[in-house]
Design a protein around this nucleic acid. Structure first.
Lengths: 147, 147
DNA sequence: GATATATGAATGCACTTGCATCGAAATGTC
DNA sequence: GACATTTCGATGCAAGTGCATTCATATATC
């Protein structure tokens, strides 16, 4: 493995910077509206999309690329707010299921009313659907296991 | 501001996920080689590129999108390791200049010997220069002030 | 030129994250 | 079926981050 071409390094630097910049703006909008961070939203949405609103912590970790211990503690906080519930996993006492509550679903909806428009403002306004699809498909190539 | 088109939301989600995934792999390579995180590298490179290897904290903050207090403390740590030096800013006693040391330059070079190949492995292998340029130019549209 | 305002950097405190490890339960091996 | 190994989730502790505020100096206003 050798020197990457300049164009590749450049794309990488911009990927990180653009992500940080846009995420910063969106997080600021959410916080400004009195909402928790994107991480909370991501967990709520992940659960909401699941059958019965339930998922195992592992599934959430892998989908959202969280560390096990971070998710464990994030779920502590969310459970304390009544947004999710930990329930036993049938047939395996080590595991558990996380279930979204009514409050959790409501918070997800309310957050989307700020988050959706923020996406429009910071991304939607800046390129058309064709460009969006193109970007998504280029980014897709970066994901998944190596080789 | 209304509902963003699905293609836009999709691009946004992938932007964050791909960035996190690739950054995670690269950080793991650096750590595995006994090096500090990308944030340290970014500061070192930023200084190295500057005339005389000097930059004000503000300049670094804006370039790298760091919070003022985070950079202040990161510089504490880097200074403690002998990688940078804080020197007085001529004509303004509030301000300061951060100067990279010989050790700092050496560390940047050594880190690049791991970082560069990691970029090749996780990005370079996955698309050609044309695609890289295309990605960079799409991402460019997301950066900078709104409107 | 005295007073108010603004700017650059640091810091106390609470919260979050990373790391290593733990304990409990499941699985694999003999 | 006893014992080692693996998997799941939690946690103590150290390190990093966010927030609000601080201190010091510079600039603007009158």
């Amino acid at each position: 493995m050798q020197e990457p071409p300049e164009a590749v390094t450049d794309a990488w630097v911009r990927l990180i910077r653009a992500g940080r910049e846009v995420a910063g703006k969106i997080e600021a909008d959410l916080k400004g509206a009195g909402f928790p961070s994107l991480a909370w939203y991501d967990v709520l949405l992940s659960l909401k999309k699941a059958p019965d609103g339930r998922r195992t912590p592992r599934e959430i970790e892998h989908e959202l690329l969280f560390e096990q211990y971070n998710l464990s503690r994030l779920l502590d906080r969310m459970e304390a707010e009544g947004l999710v519930k930990r329930i036993p996993f049938p047939g395996d006492k080590r595991r558990q299921l996380i279930e979204i509550t009514g409050e959790g679903r409501a918070l997800q909806r309310h957050m989307w009313s700020v988050y959706g428009p923020a996406i429009s403002r910071y991304l939607g306004c800046r390129f058309g659907e064709g460009e969006a699809r193109q970007l998504a498909s280029l980014l897709q190539k970066l994901m998944g296991p190596d080789e």
